[in-house]
Structure formats: C-alpha cells, structure tokens
Write a protein that binds this DNA or RNA. Structure first.
Lengths: 352, 352
DNA sequence: ATTATCTGAGCAAACGTTATCTCAAGCGGC
DNA sequence: GCCGCTTGAGATAACGTTTGCTCAGATAAT
C-alpha cells in the first residue's frame, strides 16, 4: 500500500505537471491570448507569420486546448452520450466503433452509459449525461422493435436511435434486415438451389419477420417456390439442431431442402451440427447461410459459415454522420434509415 | 429530408428549451448565487430554511448543474477515459459496467475509446481524452501479458490497467486466473475424479500458464496425479475437438481421463462435441469444466457447461473504487490486484 | 489631400460555476 | 457598553476559452 496524492498544481511557472494554457502560448509567441486562440483555430485574419509563430509556440510547450473551457463558452461538450442496454456489447461495441471513427476527427468523444433495462440506472445515467451537457444522444438497443425504458430529455437535443424502436418523428438507423435476407436468398438461388428453406427466431421479433419477408419475396422474384413455410422458433442452436432432424430425419414424403437460410448464426450452427450428425453433407447436399457474421460462430462451424454481416460499424458511422449534421443544422433524414448489409461467403455455401 | 436547427438559445427568460442556470434558481429562492451553490452542494453554514427554499426552487425549475462550468473551476471533468483494444467488447463491456456502477453515484461517467491496436487511432483517441481533461484513465486490454501501443500522458493522471500488462510501478487489476483454475480443479477433485486432464490455449499466453499452474498445484495439494501434462494449443473449439479424439480415440495404453479442465469455454465446447461423437457420456464418464462463463457457449453445450466466471463486472467495480481513491489521494494498492473468480456449476460436472 | 475601406491585432466581456474574502448582525462575557 | 466570537449570507475573483467590439495604421477611392 502506498499513498498517491492527486495533483493539485495551479500552474506555477514551469511546473512540469501543470497543464499549459493558452496564455502561456500567447506569451511565448509574443501575441495576445485572443490572437493565439484565433491562430490555432484557423480563424480571423492575420499575418501568416504570426500564425506560424503561435503554432510553433504551442508545439514547443505541448499545448492541449482545454475542452472544458471551450465547451463552457460554446455551450458544447464535444461529447456524445451512448445509452445502451446491451450487456456483452455484441451490438453496441461495433456501433460505438463506427461512431467514434467519424466523430474522433471532429473532436467528439463517446460517453458510454449502459443501463441494464433498469429504470433507476437508466435515469441516473441520463441525468449524468444531461449534466455533462452532451451534444447528442444515441439510444442503442438490442432489438429493433423495443425501445429503452427511458424518458427522453429536453427537446432540441439531437437524439438518434439505433438497433431499437424509433419513436414517431424520431431519427433512427437500423440494419437492413430485409435486404440482408435478400442477399442471402439470392445467393442461394444463384447457386442453383431450388428448395430453399428458412429457419429463424421467434415471430415476435421484427427482425425475424423482416428476414422472412426478404426470403419470401426474393423467391417470388425468382419464380421459385419456398421449401415449406418459414420455421420460427428460438434464436438458439437448439432450435437449429432440432430443425435438422425435423427436415431430414423422418421421411416427410417430400424432398428435403437443398439450402437453408437461417435467421442467425446460432441457429445455423445448430443446424449444421444436426445435419453433420445425420450424415448430410454441407454444402453438397445442403447449402447453409446464417445471419450476423458473429465470427465466433461463423468460423467454428465445419465448414465455415456463409453469413450476412449487418455492417454495424458502418451503421455507427452513418449515425455519427447524422449526428454531426444535426448539431450543425444540416438536413437529416427523418425516420428510419436502413443501412446496408453484406454477404460474407464461406464454405458452407461453396459452389459445388 | 427535413432540416433541424441546432438549438441556439441563450437564455431568454422562460425559453423552455434553454437550460436553467444557478442564477435563476438563486433569483427564485431570493438568495445570491453563492448561497444557492452552497445550498445545493450541502456546503457552508446556513439556515435550514434557506437551504430548503433553494432546493425547492431548483426542483421547480428543473435545474441541472452544468458539469462543464463546475469542471472548469474545479479542474476536473467528472469523466474517466476507458481506452481499449477490444473490438467486440467481450471483456470491455462487463468491465465498463462495473466501472460505471461505482462511478455513477459519484457523478463520474465513462468515456469509451476503442483503438484497434492502431497506433494512429490510439494517439488520436488519447489526445481527445487529454483535451477533455479526463480525471483518470483505464487501459483495458484483451490479454494480461500485452500492453496497448500507447504512450502514456502527463504524470499525475491516475492510470489503471485492467486485463492487460501492468507496467513497472503501475496499478492494475487482473482476474485471478490461477485461483479460478484452483476452484475448477478442486471442484473436480471433490467430485471424486482422479484422472484430471488440462486442455488449454497457447503456452505463449500468461493466462494459459497461470491456469495450468492452478490446475497442477491443486492436484499436488490433494496428492493427486495429473492425467498427463497439460495440452496446450489454440483457444479454439477445433483444439478441444481434436483433443477428444486424441484422449479417447486411439488406444493410448492408458486409462482416459475422468475429468477435463479446459482453459476456456470454446475449447470445452469443442471437447464436448468430440466426446459426444465418440459416445463418451458427460458427466458420467468425463466431467468437463470450462473457463470464462461465456454464456453463449456455456449454455449451448449439451449438457450445459460448468465453468469459471472471471467476475469482470466485479473487476471493473474494484478498478472504479481504486480510481476514486486515487483522485482523492487515498491509499491505493500498487502493483497488480487479482480479483476473485467464481465457479458456476452446471450439468457438465454434475455429481453422478 | 481627404475620406472610406481593409487589415491585423488587442481589450474586455462573456460562459456557469466554485472558492476566498468580507461584512453585518446577534450574542454572551465582563 | 465595549470586545471578541459565531452565524448567515453576499461580493468578487477566479477557471481557460471564445467572440464582439474597438482601434491604429495601411491602402484604396474620391
């Protein structure tokens, strides 16, 4: 055990721990604080030489502008609040990555608040974000048809919803579930498969319904028949595993599917396990495509799984751009924007 | 498309969008700003009645203190920077949860910066955190024997390392890998297993080495023999799957193990898949224990997997407490603190 | 020459708090 | 009735920026 003192250095000349302020930069450059400020911000008019001198001084002293002071006068915090109920961050972290990728260059950082569907926690977090005067709020959920238990604050604050229900008149970004399903299904059609089944999560999930629609419509577009109706169930390996037996096990008086589009990678994983056990060959007998591109699953199946990537990083990026537009008063697409998905082809749907 | 104007309301009397300031609260309560500030902060001496009146006024107006202004004068931002290279957030998000759980009550929020092992990104993020004047920094990695590619900033700033290498003289929090391995192994011993194998990740990982040590020492403590040396390999299902064949497939002129302690849940998953295929019964013939309690795996194995939970939320909590102590100049344990793990017993090691 | 315009730069006032003094009133002790 | 002490509260100066205004000198227009 040892005691560490917090630093309490109100700048005394050359105290190395103390932060250097604009005043010191100005002094070194031989200009006023005003001029120094303008020089560093590329604002105002001035002799190029003066600007250069100030820059040089800032460099020498290792000056870092104090974002707090700047925030006070500009009434901004250069901060975006990310409120999420995602515990393991499967969705939230890629989105956060995309967000900061566009925001970092603009000096905006992300304040992460995970409230575990706990209203008290949510309120506490929201109050903290409010006091920190975040420049905007991103509400990130886990499913696109539920909203967080959150009473949204003062009007005028830019708010974006991602991976969650978007309220009337709100701005939101969701992955294009239907489009992703189309990509997957079209891919299977293109491979020459003609008996394409769909195996997915609970009917109660909007995502499941949208993916089913994408599957069905794509088949229609191609004048192909579906292999039976979609099999709704749990978002679990168990569900996929059991479906394998159901589709191939007993004689159903019907040819089994030659391709299965699964609503997520877990289901696909279970299905593949089940099929493998039954001696069904993948992709020769049945091609399998998943959804999510959760690599821990997609790479673990044998063979590796072709799957739809939701492009969550890109989704975060777009949300970030939307946010930037909002705080600058530029036009922003109201309502829901669907961001593109991408098919990642692996061996489970290889051309045979 | 529609245009949304940013709010630009410098408080004009009762403009509903404008933030209410302390001045207005003070006016309503009929006191000076100074007094209002003290009343709300439980500071100074004053008539209880006065304090009450100010509180009431603040309540009425929906006053939220401006953390930025407060930060400027107190030279704090009430913000903690969390720098991580974890992409999917498997480790980082639980840690962040633990962190904010203790920090939220103290008004401290978490600024998330994920730098993907990209030095440029890291520097950019670090600069942003520096300009935001974070009160401290938590460096969160993915493995305990590597540090992030990061040049740490001004001395005096509290820095904590979690799930990453802790530099000389630094403060760090790591899960107790060895202790977790002991829990797992002792559990198997207590079940009466006598031929306990260990199947884990690459030797190059400190975690793998520590878990192996915990396994070995626990066996020694119990005067039990190990079932062969530990099998190091990949952190993958593949590795577990192949090990199953190796242990049980060919005749090795040796009794197979009656228990396997795996270095992580993926390996355990692969092992169980392999064993099941070989017709080995779990837990009757072989008990299996994993490490990580990654529920997506632990619940997917059949039977469900007994595994060691690293207690990452608790780890985050402790790191948060450490941070609070540091900024208050209280004693902090230097060096590495190992936080407790917990055994989560499921059917794969049920008593038979 | 005289006036208008432009240029480069500084002064001073914000921004919303907290912190350091100051001060008046009340009160008990002598 | 004077002195010290406490109590309650306000005035004022920070904190480190940005920004509107001012202003002297240079340059261009009349």
């Amino acid at each position: 055990m040892s005691t560490m003192q917090p630093q309490k250095n109100r700048s005394t000349s050359t105290d190395s721990g103390a932060r250097v302020t604009l005043r010191e930069v100005a002094a070194l450059a031989g200009v006023s604080v005003t001029t120094a400020s303008r020089a560093l911000n590329d604002a105002g008019r001035m002799q190029p030489e003066t600007r250069r001198r100030v820059r040089q001084a800032a460099q020498t002293l290792g000056y870092r502008p104090n974002s707090i002071a700047r925030g006070l006068v500009q009434n901004r915090s250069f901060t975006l609040g990310l409120l999420t109920n995602d515990i393991y961050g499967r969705f939230t972290l890629p989105i956060a990555t995309g967000l900061s990728r566009v925001l970092a260059d603009r000096g905006v950082s992300v304040l992460l608040s995970s409230c575990h569907d706990d209203p008290r926690m949510t309120r506490l977090n929201l109050e903290a974000l409010e006091e920190k005067r975040v420049d905007g709020l991103v509400i990130a959920g886990r499913r696109i048809d539920r909203s967080l238990p959150v009473e949204l604050p003062r009007s005028g604050l830019p708010i974006l919803h991602v991976m969650s229900a978007v309220p009337e008149g709100g701005v939101g970004f969701l992955p294009d579930d239907r489009g992703g399903a189309r990509l997957a299904t079209q891919h299977l059609v293109n491979l020459g498969r003609r008996r394409i089944a769909h195996l997915t999560g609970p009917r109660g999930f909007e995502s499941a319904r949208l993916r089913e629609l994408g599957w069905r419509y794509t088949l229609e577009d191609n004048h192909a028949d579906a292999w039976g109706p979609a099999l709704f169930g749990e978002w679990s390996e168990q569900h996929g595993f059991e479906a394998a037996l159901q589709m191939f096990g007993a004689d159903r008086g019907q040819l089994p599917p030659d391709a299965v589009f699964c609503g997520n990678d877990q289901i696909a994983r279970g299905l593949i396990d089940g099929l493998t056990r039954l001696g069904v060959r993948i992709p020769e007998d049945v091609a399998v495509v998943g959804f999510d591109n959760w690599e821990i699953f997609a790479d673990a199946t044998r063979p590796p799984l072709t799957t739809v990537d939701m492009g969550l990083v890109e989704l975060g990026r777009r949300a970030g751009l939307g946010f930037l537009n909002m705080i600058e008063g530029l036009p922003v697409t109201e309502g829901v924007t669907h961001t593109p998905t991408e098919l990642v082809v692996r061996a489970s749907s290889a051309d045979t």
